[in-house]
Write a protein that binds this DNA or RNA. Structure first.
Length: 845
DNA sequence: ATCTGTGGCCACCAGC
DNA sequence: GCTGGTGGCCAC
């Protein structure tokens, strides 16, 4: 593609630059490509005003002739004009044939907002794509997050050669007969093995106070002047700019010496200094900057009359962005469930800066007495700086883990980092699948094209769910020594790959395929064509299992390489895991339940057949859940037999997951604990480990687990039992004597929706929340204790020791331990000996 | 405006 | 007191 630069064209020649994003400047009617050059830490902007006209494509793939006529007859086309109409040919995967469409290029992507309602509705039925940059990037062969250079005014991707180790592994692992898939896998390796550069960035945090008590300054009105702004940059920038106000004492500087504190008198000066800093960075990091910090800065700058062109912030509908770079609002990243669970192991629960930073980097906001608006200048600077610092550190800990993760996801999903950081996993997968369609010149189906009859779907085990899921087996309760856990690597993605599952292959249109029924379902499978989702998800699955799982085993890898591989592996895990779920989620644009239904059905068949095969080989299976089986053997030969069988008969990879010294199953599913050879304990599902349980119970539970981890042979259980008894008795005595601090008796339960949405039943944590004066929102964790009388609960802050309903805690202790002891063949009452717990609390007179 | 899935256990609520 | 339903957290 030919591009002209806004200025100083030569400086771009042959420099390796990372593509951050492509945006459309609707005002100037041109595309803006944002590049970053890591070596010199420079920002490059390309303004595309080439023959590729300012750009709008209506219709995701193009439009059919009916709609084209409609468009032409409408004289008025919003503020935009049709510039060019091109005939294009696409492949309709569902009908398995070619179709002709028209691609309309107009001079303003905002036309859709300007057209009349009848046309708007028509466009809606065509699912017009106003995400112009997706088309733009695809049309120009651009992938965000990878390196390009400009040679002779053309943007050329930088070629990276695969390392020798990589080539060796790919040669070993790839099947000779799957050429098409292999090509895809190699392409993934080339894409994902590109180096992950450090992205120069700065975090920003602002402090504003309203004059009125209890009124939080709103960013829309930006009514109050900003008092201070703090920055922490990847280039060691540490700075706080404070606007001096007469009423505040200057105070004493207790910040580290390398933090620069700059005083200014006017707000204008404060903002201009800030903008000058922002312009030096291609990436700015905030916590809630979309809704507050950047929005406030932008609106405030407008308000005090700073020229629009001198404000480097651009406000979008849902995000605040930099004109010259990207903005990552970490609040929106950490609220993403996939990031929370898969990338950060569910370490944090709430999504405030304080909650996330204390969980991930062990640092919290500065606490102080009284009102923040009364702090002295230096005290405020310290507070402000600390917020900016922890915001920055959330992107830098573990060697920039988060930034690297976002960059890798950006490469996989073909989505700019700023969008990756804001949008949910279904959007990543949408973007990835759309890109795949465009590359294959395939029509992206509309929701209406993907219809199915509800009767053909299996019925779910759980009421309220749409289809049947994984299979959980009854555990053989009791203690089992020497147990091996086998599990299928990426079961669902593997099924999608091996069984050719995709929206156009499950229940396909070919008559001759209708006999290829999936056992236990109504669905048949296409044997004539490869499904597009199957190939894509399959290739991702293969690159993870055949490549990134093997690479760390290679010798001689540098630390950087190891790190790259672990980050990529993590990102692949997140996306693979979600790709099956997205196909079964109604809001997903390529939602087609038969695929999800077929996936789990095949999964159930696979685990059932595997267990049968184990039994044929005299291997006792004591438990299984969805993709795993627990066998009572540590015999390597037997394990190898199973692995080979799975490989040959199922085309599935059955891995040795772990070996337990012993496992104890209760009679319940999803409830067990296992002790490994080195003494580490796995605890699954027990009430005692759940996060909402009071510490009083949890401490007792873990102390018992600790005793049990010391058990080597069956004889040791007696001893463990004794120790547990002594420990519980001690703890119960403390409870009885009111010597347990109230905090340790507190439950922590999250509001999953706004308080007023709890209609019908009112759960305890909601009752407690209502007793508080504070305004509790969705996502907040309510901390409360169980009390005698009243609502039966009180928020921790309002409770006193004499309120506590000790009997409730006694009951919980008993049920928690019964669940655990059940697996050992004991009961709580029995373990406590002749004295019943009740007698401890309420001795008979 | 945003949102990946089902299976399973527990405590509690609300109605009978 | 029983029971079906709700809500929360966890396993996979």
């Amino acid at each position: 593609m030919a591009l002209k630069t806004a200025s100083n064209q030569n400086k771009y020649e042959n420099i390796e630059m990372l593509l951050l994003s492509a945006t459309y400047d609707g005002f100037r009617k041109k595309a803006v490509l944002k590049f970053y050059e890591p070596k010199n830490k420079e920002i490059y902007l390309w303004h595309d005003k080439s023959d590729h006209k300012p750009y709008c494509l209506i219709g995701r793939d193009g439009i059919d002739s009916n709609f084209l006529d409609e468009l032409k007859t409408k004289n008025k086309f919003g503020p935009g004009k049709i510039l060019k109409i091109e005939k294009i040919t696409k492949i309709d995967l569902l009908q398995d044939k070619k179709i002709e469409l028209w691609k309309v290029i107009a001079d303003n992507p905002l036309v859709i907002g300007g057209i009349d309602n009848s046309l708007r509705n028509l466009i809606k039925t065509w699912e017009a794509d106003i995400k112009y940059y997706e088309n733009y990037m695809y049309d120009n062969g651009l992938i965000p997050g990878i390196f390009y250079k400009i040679i002779n005014n053309k943007i050329i991707p930088v070629e990276f050669n695969l390392s020798e180790q990589a080539q060796t592994i790919l040669k070993q692992e790839l099947n000779d007969n799957e050429t098409e898939l292999n090509e895809k896998i190699i392409n993934w390796a080339k894409l994902l093995d590109q180096p992950l550069p450090e992205i120069k960035r700065v975090s920003l945090d602002i402090e504003v106070f309203s004059n009125e008590i209890n009124k939080f300054p709103g960013a829309d009105e930006a009514e109050y002047p900003i008092r201070s702004i703090a920055f922490v940059g990847s280039d060691n920038l540490k700075e706080v700019i404070i606007r001096k106000e007469k009423e505040h004492p200057i105070g004493k500087n207790t910040l580290e010496k390398d933090v620069r504190i700059k005083f200014v008198n006017e707000e204008k000066e404060l903002l201009e200094n800030t903008f000058e800093i922002l312009r030096k960075y291609p990436c700015v990091i905030t916590y809630n900057g979309d809704d507050f910090d950047l929005k406030y800065l932008h609106n405030r700058a407008n308000k005090i009359g700073i020229n629009k062109s001198n404000i480097p912030i651009q406000m979008g509908r849902i995000e605040a962005n930099l004109k010259h770079g990207i903005h990552i609002d970490l609040y929106r990243t950490f609220i993403n469930k996939s990031i929370q669970i898969y990338a950060f192991g569910n370490k944090y629960k709430e999504h405030t800066l304080n909650a996330v930073s204390s969980a991930l980097i062990g640092k919290s906001k500065i606490e102080f007495e009284g009102s923040i608006s009364e702090l002295s200048d230096y005290e405020l600077a310290k507070y402000n700086y600390n917020d900016a610092l922890i915001t920055y550190e959330l992107t830098s800990f573990n060697d920039d883990l988060l930034m690297k993760l976002l960059l890798v996801i950006s490469r996989i999903a073909k989505m700019p980092i700023n969008d990756v950081s804001r949008l949910g996993v279904s959007n990543w997968i949408r973007s990835m699948l759309y890109f795949e369609h465009r590359t294959a010149n395939a029509l992206i189906p509309r929701k209406d094209d993907l219809k199915f009859e509800e009767e053909v779907i299996s019925s779910a085990t759980i009421k309220g769910k749409k289809y049947q899921g994984g299979m959980v087996f009854e555990p053989k309760s009791g203690i089992h020594f020497n147990v091996t856990v086998l599990d299928f690597a990426s079961l669902y993605p593997s099924i999608i790959k091996v069984h050719n599952l995709s929206y156009e292959t499950v229940r396909c249109n070919h008559k001759e395929d209708k006999q290829n029924i999936i056992k236990g379902t109504n669905h048949w499978l296409c044997k004539q064509r490869k499904g597009i989702a199957s190939t894509l998800i399959g290739s991702l699955r293969d690159i993870r299992i055949k490549y990134y799982k093997q690479l760390p085993k290679m010798k001689g890898l540098s630390k950087n390489e190891q790190e790259l591989y672990s980050v990529v592996s993590q990102a692949l895990k997140v996306i693979l895991n979600a790709s099956y779920g997205a196909l079964g989620a109604e809001m997903f644009p390529l939602y087609y339940l038969p695929v999800a239904d077929a996936t789990t059905a095949i999964g159930r068949n696979i685990i059932k057949e595997t267990i049968e095969e184990a039994q044929r080989n005299d291997i006792e299976v004591i438990y299984g859940d969805t993709d795993s089986l627990f066998i009572k053997s540590i015999d390597n030969n037997k394990i190898e037999i199973m692995r080979n069988w799975a490989d040959k008969k199922l085309e599935m990879e059955l891995d040795l997951d772990k070996t337990y010294r012993y496992v104890a199953f209760s009679t319940l599913k999803k409830n067990y604990f296992g002790v490994m050879k080195d003494g580490t304990v796995d605890i699954k599902g027990f009430t005692g480990k759940k996060s909402h349980i009071p510490l009083f119970i949890k401490d007792a539970f873990y102390s018992a687990i600790n005793e049990l981890s010391l058990v080597e042979t069956s004889k040791d259980f007696e001893n463990a039992k004794n120790n547990i008894r002594i420990d519980i008795k001690k703890r119960n005595r403390l409870l009885k004597n009111e010597e347990i601090p109230l905090e340790k008796l507190a439950f922590n339960i999250m509001l999953s929706k706004p308080i007023n949405m709890y209609t019908g039943t009112v759960p305890q944590h909601v009752r407690a929340a209502k007793l508080l004066n504070e305004d509790k929102k969705k996502g907040d964790i309510i901390t409360f204790v169980k009390t005698i009388g009243g609502e039966g609960v009180k928020p921790l802050q309002l409770a006193k020791k004499q309120d506590i309903d000790k009997r409730k805690y006694e009951d919980l202790m008993k049920s928690t331990f019964d669940q655990l002891l059940d697996s050992l063949g004991y009961s709580f009452d029995e373990i406590l000996g002749a004295t019943k717990l009740e007698d401890l609390f309420w001795p008979k007179k």
